[in-house]
Write a protein that binds this DNA or RNA. Structure first.
Lengths: 344, 344
DNA sequence: ACGTTCTTCTAGACCGTTCTAGTCCGATAC
DNA sequence: GTATCGGACTAGAACGGTCTAGAAGAACGT
C-alpha cells in the first residue's frame, strides 16, 4: 500500500535500481523479464522491488514500450449479452499482466470512432470491439495500427481477427424448431440500420439463415422480414405492427432477446397471448429469458466462450501473429415455453 | 483519420508548433486552454491542430499533467443496475474532455484493490467506485491520493464523496406497502459477506430500515432476516429455505432484483405461487422487473441520476474541491403484481 | 530618458520508463 | 602475447507532453 518514497513521491525504477545497487537499465531488464541478466542480479532487483513495494507506472512504460492495457469497446453496456462476453474476456486476461478496460462507445459509428481514438491516444496495446457499427474500411485502417479483434461480425478481414456465432445456423435452428411445431407463417424481425447494410453483420446473417431455412421447408411464400431496431421499444413497435395486420404470423423470430422482450410486452398489451396467438423466439439466451415467468425460447451463442476466444486471439496477435483468423462458434437452441404448436 | 506525419510517425505537439510558427510551449498553452496567449497565436495554433488532425497522446500528458481519464470500478458487469449508473456517468462526462473507462473489479476486496491499483498506475485523474467491497481505511488511503467518489455506500467519509440511495427509506416503502396489503409475516433476505459487516453498506441499511418499519407497525415478533448472497443462486437457496419451513412468511423483501428473480424461480419450483402463496418485492427496478410476465414490485433508486450525480461530484473534486459531500437520493416504489394481499 | 510592470512568448528541464550503443571483462583462438 | 568474441552491465538519449524560469517587448509613470 505504500509505494511511496519518504518524500511522498512515488517509488520509481531508479529507487529500485539504487536499492539493488545496479543501473536503471538493469532494473528495467529484470522488470521486462528480458534476457541478458545474471541470476544474481535478477534476484537482487526482484528483492528490491518487493522490499520497496514497487509498481511500474503503466503510462510511462507506454511512452517507449507497452502499457499492458487492453481496450474493450461496447456499444450498450446494458445489453446483458455483453456481460457474458466481458466476463469471458476478463477471465482469459487475468494473470497475463494485462488489464482490460471497457470503453462505452455509444450507439453511433461516430461516437464509437471517438472512443476508439481515445483508446489509441492512451496507447492501449490491443483492442476488442464488440459489435461495432464502424464501416469495414475504417476497421481495417485502425487494425493496421494496433492489434485488434472484432466480436459479432463475420470475416474475412485483412488486418484483424473476428469471433462470431454462426448466425445463419442459429436462425435455422429457430425455423426448424417452429416448423417442427407446425408453424408456416413465420416472421423475422431484423435490426435495421441504414448506416451498415453490410453482410458481415449478424442481423443480416440471421436474415439469410432465416430465408434459407424457409426455402428449404418450401415456405418461400411466407417469408416476411420486419425492419425495426433491436431494442425494447423496437419490439413494442413490431408487436403493434403485427397486431394491426389482418393476417398475422403464428410465430416470430425476434432476432434478439431484448427485441423479444419488447415483443412479448407489446403483444400482451394488444391482447395477443404467447405462445397461444403467437409463438416468440429470441436470440442470446440472456439470464432473463430463463426466468420461469418469461421462459423465452432462445438461441444460445455461448457469449462467455466467445469472450475467452476473442481475448485469446488478441493476446496471440499482440505476441506478433499477423495472419488473420476468423472463428465461428456453434449455437444451440434453448427451447422453452414461449414457443408451442399454432392454435389453428 | 490520418494523424500521421509523412514518415508514418504520429503527429506531435512539435509538428503543430512548427506548422503554426510558434514554440512547443505556446502550442501546449493553447492545447491546455491556459491563459497568457494572444488571440492571434491561439487562432494560428488551433488552425494548425485541425490542419494536421492532431490528437494529443493522453499517456504522455499524464507524465506531468493529467490523462483526462476517469476510472469506474464495478464488481459484476452483469448486474443490470450498474448499466443504468454507467449510462448516467457517461452522459455527464460526455463533452468535458474526459473519457470514462470501466474496470471489472471482480467480487472480492483483493481483486478490486488490484484493479484500483491498475487505475492508479495508469494515472487516471479520478475514480468512481461502485459498491466496492474494500474496507473503509483502504478507501480513505486511496482517496488521499486521487479524487474519488463512492456510489452505493453511505457517508460520512474524510477524503471522498458518496452517492447512495436512501436504503432505509426504500425498505420502509416495501414494508409499508406489504403491511398495507395485510401482511404480517414479512421476511428480509440480506446479502451476507463476513468481510464487510459495515453499517455503511446498503444491505445493512436496508436491514435497519426493515427492522425499524416492522417495529413501527408493531410487528417486532415477526422480524426475520435470512442471510444469503444477492444473486440468482442466493435467491434459489433462500426459496428452498422458506419452502422447508413449517411456518412460512406470506411476503418477502428480497433485498435486490437479482435475488428476487432467484427467489421467484425457486418458489415456483417448490410449487409455491407468487403472489398467491408468497408475495415478493425486489430492489433496483431493473428492466427485467417491468416485463409483464415478471411484473416484480421493486424499489427504484434512479440509477441513472445517481451516476450523473457521482460524475458531477468527481469533476468538481478534480477541479479542486476538498470538503467531502454525501448525497442521498430518494427512492420510490414501483408496485406491480408480484405483491398482493395474503391468502389466509 | 529611465525604471517598473505587465503581457506574451520561449528554451530547456522534467516526468518514469525503454532502448540504443556502447564499455568492461574474462575466456578462447591463434 | 594479442586479437576476437560473447555475456553482463550501463550511460544517456528518446518518447510526447507539461511546467518553470526567464527573456523580449510594449505600455505607463515620473
Amino acid at each position: 500500500m505504500t509505494t511511496k518514497a519518504s518524500g511522498g513521491r512515488r517509488i520509481t525504477i531508479r529507487d529500485v535500481a539504487a536499492h539493488a545497487g545496479v543501473s536503471t537499465s538493469s532494473a528495467s531488464l529484470v522488470l521486462r523479464g528480458a534476457a541478458g541478466v545474471s541470476a544474481e542480479t535478477r534476484r537482487r532487483v526482484e528483492q528490491a522491488m518487493t522490499d520497496l513495494d514497487y509498481r511500474p507506472l503503466a503510462a510511462a512504460r507506454g511512452m517507449r514500450g507497452k502499457t499492458f492495457t487492453i481496450g474493450v469497446l461496447v456499444s450498450d453496456i446494458r445489453n446483458p449479452f455483453f456481460g457474458l462476453l466481458l466476463d469471458g474476456v476478463a477471465e482469459r486476461i487475468a494473470g497475463t499482466g494485462y488489464e482490460p478496460f471497457i470503453g462505452p462507445g455509444g450507439a453511433t459509428a461516430a461516437s464509437q470512432m471517438r472512443m476508439i481514438q481515445a483508446m489509441r491516444d492512451r496507447q492501449m496495446d490491443g483492442l476488442i470491439l464488440i459489435g461495432p457499427h464502424v464501416a469495414a474500411t475504417e476497421l481495417e485502417a485502425i487494425a493496421a495500427e494496433v492489434p485488434m479483434v472484432v466480436v459479432g461480425r463475420h470475416g474475412p478481414a485483412e488486418n484483424f481477427d473476428t469471433v462470431a456465432g454462426d448466425d445463419e445456423q442459429g436462425s435455422q435452428l429457430i425455423v426448424d424448431h417452429l416448423v417442427g411445431l407446425g408453424h408456416r407463417r413465420i416472421s423475422y424481425v431484423t435490426h435495421w440500420d441504414p448506416e451498415s447494410a453490410d453482410d458481415r453483420r449478424p442481423e443480416n446473417r440471421r436474415e439469410q439463415g432465416y430465408v434459407e431455412a424457409m426455402r428449404r421447408h418450401g415456405l418461400d411464400g411466407f417469408v416476411d422480414v420486419v425492419r425495426e431496431e433491436w431494442s425494447h421499444d423496437g419490439g413494442l413497435r413490431a408487436a403493434a405492427a403485427f397486431a394491426a395486420r389482418a393476417k398475422r404470423p403464428t410465430a416470430v423470430h425476434a432476432g434478439a432477446d431484448v427485441s423479444a422482450f419488447g415483443l412479448l410486452t407489446g403483444l400482451a398489451e394488444a391482447g395477443l397471448s404467447t405462445p397461444g396467438a403467437i409463438s416468440v423466439a429470441g436470440y442470446d439466451n440472456t439470464a432473463t429469458s430463463a426466468l420461469p415467468r418469461v421462459s423465452l425460447t432462445s438461441v444460445d451463442q455461448s457469449g462467455h466462450e466467445m469472450g475467452r476466444l476473442a481475448a485469446d486471439l488478441l493476446l496471440d496477435r499482440i505476441d506478433g501473429r499477423r495472419r488473420s483468423v476468423h472463428e465461428l462458434t456453434a449455437p444451440w437452441l434453448a427451447v422453452r415455453s414461449s414457443t408451442a404448436a399454432p392454435e389453428d
